[in-house]
Design a protein around this nucleic acid. Sequence first.
DNA 1: TTTTAATGTAACTTCCGTTGTTACATTCGA
DNA 2: TCGAATGTAACAACGGAAGTTACATTAAAA
Lengths: 150, 150
Amino acid sequence: MQISSRFTLAIHIFACIDTFGSEYKVTSDFLAGSTNVNPVIIRKILGQLKGAGLIKVARGTGGAAVTRPLSEITFLDIYNAVECVENGELFHFHENPSTNCPVGKNIHYILDDKLLRVQNALERELAAITLADVKRDTEKYLNTENSENS
Amino acid sequence: MQISSRFTLAIHIFACIDTFGSEYKVTSDFLAGSTNVNPVIIRKILGQLKGAGLIKVARGTGGAAVTRPLSEITFLDIYNAVECVENGELFHFHENPSTNCPVGKNIHYILDDKLLRVQNALERELAAITLADVKRDTEKYLNTENSENS
DNA sequence: TTTTAATGTAACTTCCGTTGTTACATTCGA
DNA sequence: TCGAATGTAACAACGGAAGTTACATTAAAA
């Protein structure tokens, strides 16, 4: 199974807030238009990002804004915020290995540390990428487009 | 979403083949007993491992055996064999980002390289762990158990 | 050659997470 | 007070994971 699109959606949302936030009010409808995803889904993700303290969302008046510098928000912050994996465990284990079989009885002792190594490698890389990296490349592609049009 | 339990099941299967293969015939029913998972599920995984050339399975007579030294089978080999993620892409993307929005139009250009970095980190760590590591720890835990009983 | 035990696979079901959708109470500025 | 937006509940549609039954096929052994 793939990691939920909530993750890429969340990054898309941040890119929009940064690109359009000064010009437009970035609402769930606005974001639904850019992502082509239902506004209720967007609001749910906005709620998770808000819960993690990464953005603030204005009730009533509307619009989302980032709470801290983009260089201080990592992909791991976002990944954790939108709860991509159940109880933070990347690998799903078969539920009830036999307690009679010597291998089944010990399979968690045997495997857990190795699976954790892999999960740590994933999270380490997620932590090494920030929204500042996204901003840099977003500007690069938007500028390319502008100069092509001119 | 978590990575399918087919992955941990496959490793469990290899641990059983190595531990019991010389003593018993390791059939899908035997493995179903150790993992507490339906034998048809086991056979499907055995089929995928066979398709990847990691094991051979005896029709008719029954039983599975490894085709090469455990130190030459990595977690990545197994991960790929059991097809944990669709088209080899770890991250699921929202399907139709707007082509009108400058961000939506470029979101793949902006993100794909970063997601690939993360996926590569995961796969690099998977490739660094082999079934020889599993065998070593399996023997460690089985011996601990034996000495406790004596 | 027949029996037996096992694999390979089709077909169907159950379960659960994801995503979409409608509806509406709540909020807050104008 | 009005209007635009959020927050959230409730439900549906979809798809993959995993379970289950059934059976044709295989190959060794009796």
